[in-house]
Amino acid sequence: MTDTTSLSAPPTDASIWRRIVDSDLFYDFSRRPIIILSALLTLVIILAAAFAPWIAPHTPFDPSSLNLMDGFTPPMEPNAFTGNVYWMGTDSQGRDIFSAILYGARISLLVGFAAVAFAAILGITLGLIAGYKGGLVDTIIMRIADVQLSFPAILVALLIFGITKSLIPNEMQEQAAIYVLILSIGLSDWVQYARTVRSSTLAEKNKEYVQAARLFGVSSFRILARHILPNVMGPVLVIGTIGLALAIILESTLSFLGVGVPATQPSLGTLIRVGNEFLFSGEWWITLFPGITLLILALSVNLLGDWLRDALNPRLR
């Protein structure tokens, strides 16, 4: 045996792509047209947002490129003064709505992903510690979570937003706004992750593979990071996906209320708010197209999350 070790076969498992295609999850996915559509729409919006500078016909927030004469152009109609045609029309400043949506989706998705990542990292860490250590640490973390959960997320986000903004000097507010938004949405949403991870951790830590690792004198940190964490990530993925939809909606709500990102960097929510002012004067397209985009994005991500939850839950199979 010892002589042949150097000849031992290379990894026998097939390529990652092959394994994905063979998995039950992919099989289930391939049989649900609505989920495929959701995934495609999500992907298209994400790609369009990511490549906005290359796709967008105009740079909507460069004042030098704007022509006030183009203002209030209805969709697919030539402008009365300039004769320019815009797919989705323009707003009061003559901004191309389609371009504004691409850039706005960029901000919305950035805030959504960052907030989810922040909430997940915070929630997972606290959940792991609470579940593994137990006792007083557990009680303190989970009571804070319970208290926070008894307030609506938007209230928590507004509160954190207000407090953080008051701490930042005036001249930095503009730049810091997006980070403050990420922080407040993230902080309002960590509880879900913490609770889920904690209960999974409670189940995993009593499994024998964790006990075995303790016998080898493996440190608590390593046990949590290398053994327990990979085994509690399944549900986190599900909450994360649904959480992304919620974070995008929460961001839009905050922006709509005027406490989110500044108008110089509008997100989908800001666009809707701005457009809302013109809704009753007949310029419906300014608010409708960003609204539809937000709806499609949030709905698709949410459907994906719901599907993922059911597909990964063995009891529902």
């Binding site: 499994k207 024998e208 593979y209 006990q211 075995a212 053994h227 990979p230 085994n231």
Partner: peptide
């Protein structure tokens, strides 16, 4: 033996 080996 199903619980004593880390599945991942």
């Amino acid at each position: 033996p199903f619980a004593s080996l880390n599945p991942r």
